[in-house]
Write a protein that binds this DNA or RNA. Structure first.
Length: 261
DNA sequence: ATTATTTGACCGAT
DNA sequence: ATCGGTCAAATAAT
């Protein structure tokens, strides 16, 4: 449908046939909505028990090798969430501290912690490319930033003109041009998959983002009828945060999220 | 000189 | 013994 829409947008308005861009936009919205509910139903992160142990009083196992037994704390169940994005950047300063090969995963998993760990910030994340879509990174975050670090730059929303992803239907530009005075926080809220205990919060978040997506589709419809249509129709179409790759799969009946924000 | 990344060792859980 | 998360020494980058 995104491909059809893109094709449609390359034609003069008068040449639009029986299928209207509005209909396509609404169908795309429906796909987003349905996909979101599938994601929320299936993408729960397995819970791990909390706990920890004392790290003091290190002993020597082998000469020159520190004994780290009992040093690791278990991951807390709460305060973790996951996002999928074509970019690893999220506006925070991270420091890589590990990389592991993961069973049945084509790509290694990378481990990052906040640059300001020494100032007490407990935020960490794990980033892994998705085997089925190497274009996408699945990022699992643990703990929120407690550092006062203001992101060096705002979390970058995808722009379709990125040379790495030239075939992206990116819904950013419409939002930018039409919603510049809109609340920054609401536009930057990522759609996240949190853990079970945050279910209601998660649903509220998702319905908020779905309604964001809806209003963006409205903007898309408005945009299609506007004068600037002709100018923009050759470029990527943008709907803030919810981007679709239209050429990654030659298959028309597969549609996927390129970015869930 | 300081800070970040790479990479194999080490850890707990299974 | 295997797996995935973390540590830290060596190395690279700034």
């Amino acid at each position: 449908m995104a491909t059809k829409l893109q094709t449609l947008l390359h034609k003069p308005v008068k040449d639009h046939g029986t299928v209207s861009a509005e209909d396509l936009a609404l169908k795309i919205l429906t796909s987003f909505t349905q996909s979101l509910s599938v994601l929320t139903a299936s993408a729960q992160i397995p819970a791990v028990d909390g706990g920890g142990s004392d790290c003091s009083g290190w002993s020597k196992k082998k000469p020159g090798v520190k004994d780290r037994r009992g040093c690791y704390k278990r991951r807390k169940t709460s305060d973790s969430w996951m996002t999928i994005s074509p970019v690893m950047e999220d506006g925070y300063a991270w420091r890589k501290y590990g990389q592991k090969v993961i069973l049945n995963s084509e790509y290694p998993r990378c481990y990052f912690r906040c640059t300001y760990k020494y100032e007490g910030c407990k935020a960490t994340k794990q980033v892994q490319r998705i085997k089925e879509n190497p274009v996408l990174y699945q990022t699992t975050y643990f703990n929120h930033h407690t550092c006062t670090d203001t992101p060096i730059r705002a979390p970058p929303f995808f722009v379709g003109s990125d040379p790495v992803e030239p075939n992206l239907l990116s819904f950013q530009t419409i939002t930018q041009s039409k919603q510049d005075d809109h609340d920054q926080n609401s536009t930057n809220n990522p759609i996240v998959m949190t853990e079970k205990e945050d279910q209601s919060k998660e649903e509220a978040q998702i319905s908020e983002d779905v309604s964001d997506a809806k209003s963006s589709v409205d903007l898309l419809q408005e945009f299609i009828g506007s004068e600037s249509f002709g100018f923009h129709s050759c470029g990527p179409i943008s709907l803030h945060g919810l981007d679709m790759d239209v050429n990654q799969f030659g298959d028309l009946d597969t549609f996927h999220f390129d970015e869930i924000y």
